[in-house]
């Protein structure tokens, strides 16, 4: 099967839980987690999106030796007229279905397929082009663990602030 491998590690879960400000011990304390209903450390609900770390083609990670669109000496490392990889793209929706809990030690295989696309006129950012994408996460036994659907939106101009 195509796709890439997402090895789930306890330290990654701990750092992710810290980043979303969740002190729940089930995300970092194995002794505590053993006594809970899940019976061990599990990942927080939005952790599956951290698969970006392992996606070899993920565009929003600097590549060693390549120019990056964020600032250095100049506000952007790209040449004038060169488009950043995410030009005007924002995250519009995210949906998860949990078939079982993600646990450290899982090796998930993530496969992606495109979904629908549609357009809409936005009041604060011009024409909006929506693109749907579906990720399936299967475990080391080929069982479906997570189905995720995300919608990105390409704006014509930056979202106006009130």
């Amino acid at each position: 099967m195509a796709g890439y491998k997402f090895p789930v590690e306890a330290s990654h879960i701990m750092m992710f839980a810290r980043a979303v400000g969740d002190p729940n011990r089930i995300y970092h304390d194995a002794d505590y987690a053993k006594e809970t209903e899940p019976g061990g450390i599990i990942a927080p609900p939005t952790f599956p999106r951290a698969c970006a770390q392992f996606d070899p083609d993920y565009p929003l990670r600097p590549r060693i030796g390549q120019r990056w669109f964020g600032s250095g000496k100049e506000p952007s490392g790209l040449a004038e007229g060169e488009d950043p990889p995410s030009s005007g793209m924002l995250h519009a929706e995210q949906h998860f279905e949990y078939h079982r809990q993600v646990r450290p030690g899982d090796t998930l295989t993530v496969t992606n397929r495109p979904g629908k696309t549609w357009e809409k006129e936005g009041r604060r950012s011009g024409k909006l082009r929506f693109t749907e994408s579906i990720d399936e996460y299967r475990d080391q036994n080929g069982e479906l663990v997570i189905t995720a659907r995300s919608v990105g939106v390409q704006t014509e101009r930056p979202v106006e602030q009130k």
């Binding site: 990654h12 750092m15 999106r49 970006a52 392992f54 669109f69 964020g70 995410s86």
Partner: peptide, 14 residues
């Protein structure tokens, strides 16, 4: 933690 390094979230200059 997430691996989303889009400068829109961390880089005011950009």
């Amino acid at each position: 933690a997430s691996g989303d390094y889009n400068p829109l979230h961390t880089d005011d200059a950009y």
